[in-house]
Design a protein around this nucleic acid. Sequence first.
DNA 1: TAGCCCAAAATTTTT
DNA 2: TTTTGGGCTA
Length: 753
Amino acid sequence: MESLPAGTPMHAKSNVPGDELLADLNPAQREATSAPAGPLLILAGAGSGKTRVLTRRIAWLIRRQGVPAQRILAVTFTNRAAGEMRERVESLLGQSVRGLWIGTFHAICLRWLKRHAPAAGYGPQLSVCDAEDQLSLLRRLLKEEGFDHSPRRARELQAIISRAKNRSQTAEQFQEAARSPAQMLAGRLYRAYQDALRRQSAADFDDLLLETHRLFSGHPEIADAYARQFEHVLVDEYQDTNHVQFLLVERLARVHGNILVVGDDDQSIYGWRGAEVRNILDFREHFPQATIFYLEQNYRSTRPILEFANAAIAVNAGRYAKQLWTERPGGGLPEFFLAADEDEEAEEVAARAVAARERGGRRYRDLAVFYRTHAQSRALEDAFLRRGIPYVIVGGIYFYARREVKDLLSYLRVLVNPRDETSLRRALTVPRRGIGERTLEALLAEIREQDADALEWIRARAPEGVPARARAALAAFGEMMAALRARLAEPPERILSEVVAATGYREYLREQGGDWEERLANVEELLESARLFTSRDEGGVAEYLDQVSLMTSGDALDARADAVTLMTAHNAKGLEFPQVFVTGLEEGLFPHASALEDREELEEERRLFYVACTRAKDELTLSASQIRRRFSSGAGGVSRFLGEVPRGLFRDVSAASLAAPVSSVHRPGRTGRERGAGPGRVGEEDSSAAQDWPAHARDEADHPWVGRRVYHPRFGHGLVTAVEGRGAQARITVRFHGGQTRKVLREYLEWEP
DNA sequence: TAGCCCAAAATTTTT
DNA sequence: TTTTGGGCTA
């Protein structure tokens, strides 16, 4: 004791700051969390607590190592994950960590590009264009050059460009490397596309990464400043990073060398998007000093579920061999059932959901249903609607990609960035105001030629030879936008509602007819989102647009509602649920048809299946259909993924489940239908389906939702009085407290007990 | 210039 | 089955 240097604390070990952060970790987690600085690779199997380690590590660095929060950069895969991680770190430390840099690669890169806009070659404002904007721009370019400008062709081109960008290949480099005439053509269009974006001071998603990389290469002093700032760089889901992301990470870690990455090669499911599993497999070659930690204890799933998943993924070659294990006892075997068709499959899932709640003591929010493609949600939604089971769809058509939403946002985009031609085109022509194609093209050509501020130009003069009607319309547009621009410093919500009013957008929708009520509801929701943004005081119109552009499907996941979650297997990554259904396990669907020819792609499908199964904590149900109504082909038989797993690891309950009526709404007489109905039989299927259903089942008055209590974020509490339509697009009439009756979209309602 | 009508394509996964 | 785009007409 005497030999202790003066000043060494004598108190118990738990009093050393930071020790409490390690207390409830297992040895491997503890070592990783408290590892000395340097390159660290954490190979974390599914459910092994990787998020836990990541958040503890950040808290450890701050508390134990005294690293200032602003010197830590943490990169996640989704905005939602970023938000959760920040929250967890704050609750661990019991303090706000405002300076901590945490976000997706895309969000962080956008921030940097805007900060260094001149160096990066952008104007003072930067527009982020989504997939739809990309396609319409590409189609316009194809058309101008006199090529086939079908959507299909544009999509091909988009994929080529995206792949090139993910490999960090610029248009010039692509052109140089081009060999075949087809490649040379693609290179030319890539270049034209890039020039157009540049002119508009716009970037697509891939540009956010690639242009940041180029900014760093072209301006080493900027890159060095960040590399010095970030003493520690942490990257989640490293197996899904692409080459450009690797380059960015490597550059940022160059000064301090403290790079920590977490991932699982078995969960790499974004190869199609340019992700390179090699990044994680070769980590030690990139960072020879790297220490590797293995997290193999699974805390999530019961043993039968884990054994099933382990067996499924074991088929893949070219993986880090690892064996996940669990101490969680017992639990039932995963069950599999084969349904006659997709409707029966959905019915069975719905029936099991009801049973889980009524007899299994689960809440609806404990359940999740996964599928390979969005299109599969349809049958499930129908089945859930019939039984009045509340559900939430994650993904699908993004709210912010809806026409009415994009229409209105295009005005804001133009106000913020007048060079954004894509948005200007939209704003000028929707709603229709007497400006046709000729006027539009003449106008845009002039603006381009004069390099003028679009809004100023429009206000000042109309192009030559334009009809009086269009001339007046342009002048009115110019005045309107000038008035709005003068108020741009006001909160986004105010500007947005001004746009709605000034354009007469509500009236326009009503005139359009069709599903105008739905669209109107979306407009109200958009205003609500802007109001929320304003109330959180997160910035002005430009910041609002940034947030909206990078917003993704999962981010809106609302934990308050007690509803079953429906989503694609891709969206399921990083989540967990007590009870999970993996549906549509058929050859050609899961694995998807596009992957059947290629071993690599097939392995990725298998990893996707593995990801889906390992989301389950207590119960896993797998299903397939004998017949699936699709445009091209039917179902291709039960997925090989099931055949590859030893029979003893799951239970086939097809016969039992199909023989017994699930409930009064179970559709009878569909079991014995033979497989492989020809294409001409589809119509018959439908008519027989209609006969099976009593007419009143479709009658809105008889709908199970009628009379239920609901909550709407804007209008408050109310009672359902009628339901029209089905699925996410169902319009529900609600009498709200206070007496007013409104039609609202189902997806914005929450169910109350 | 804009709205209506018909034909044809659509479905892989997302930041 | 639904959605989207192109062509035709007022």
